[in-house]
Design a protein around this nucleic acid. Structure first.
Lengths: 158, 158
DNA sequence: TGAATCAGCACCAGTTTAGTGCTATTTCGT
DNA sequence: ACGAAATAGCACTAAACTGGTGCTGATTCA
């Protein structure tokens, strides 16, 4: 199914929220941490699942967490440096692009070493590779910027 | 999961094959029909499922079918006029990105008839909308053209 | 007639998804 | 010290989806 899971949706909601928070922080200072509860209260979504997504984002190193009372989350890096592809990878695992697996940069060594332009590559692999490249090209920053329209989101990326 | 189902993969394989067939046909003539068996014999995939995909494509009006011995399938329209979005819609159902559904401050039942540029649209809806627009912009023709690289497949579309 | 081929249902096992329960641990405020 | 707030971790369930198959019927060509 060519669609994002709820887990990813909630995670994105949270990330956009955290990006807003970071943008609102005074120059050069760290943004205040935001609790899962605080984020959840602003959207009609199961708070608990939102928390699950945040946990996953923490495990994936996209956000930093502070425990205890007054604890919460904060972006671990600048919103411009977090790509959509990375977010999706963290939240729903590396996409299983079948054989010739792992396109893009990551793909650990094994097999198909003629990576760049493998002529045997099926249209499917090319398609997925294209979609993936797009996701890698869109930053959280762009996503959080509400002035950009959906299509420009991508076409501007290339 | 941001990935295509096998059903869609097989369908795409078949469509690309049919597009090749159409391209090989003499100017102005209809391409010969190709049976599911004939297509399946060329790929290491379960023949039966390929047939299922073809059936779905027929039901969706993307291919014409001829029954009986010597029967088979043929593109119902020119490959340039069949978009990837349409193919995916036929093979795995309409994506739920429609109608401001899902979340976003304004989701509520009613209407959101200001569809074009709804300012309240959530980042998620915008994201899906963007992905969708991309798929709509890629034609089967482009997909079948093996000389185009994966990334150009999309960036050229905008 | 008979074989090839598409069409329509209906079924099953395995995986994924969404969502919840419960407990432990850390930290702040009093 | 204590309790509340909050993250961390594990485990579990019900529903949906996926991949794949079985079977029967209808249509067409030879």
């Amino acid at each position: 199914m060519l669609k994002l899971t709820k887990r990813t949706e909630y995670g994105l909601i949270a990330l956009v929220h955290l990006a807003d928070q970071a943008a609102a922080a005074p120059e050069g200072t760290l943004a205040e941490v935001v609790s899962a509860r605080a984020i959840g209260d602003q959207f009609p979504i199961p708070r608990r699942l939102l928390a699950e997504s945040l946990k996953a984002l923490q495990a994936g190193g996209l956000v930093d967490s502070t425990r205890g009372s007054q604890g919460g989350y904060r972006l671990a890096r600048a919103a411009e440096s977090i790509s959509l592809g990375e977010i999706v990878t963290v939240l729903e695992g590396a996409p299983s692009l079948t054989s010739c697996a792992g396109l893009g940069a990551a793909s650990a060594g094994g097999g198909c070493d003629v990576e760049p332009v493998c002529p045997i590559r099926s249209p499917l692999a090319r398609l997925r590779s294209g979609i993936w490249a797009l996701l890698e090209g869109v930053s959280l920053q762009a996503l959080a910027d509400r002035s950009v329209n959906p299509v420009a989101l991508f076409s501007a990326a290339s």
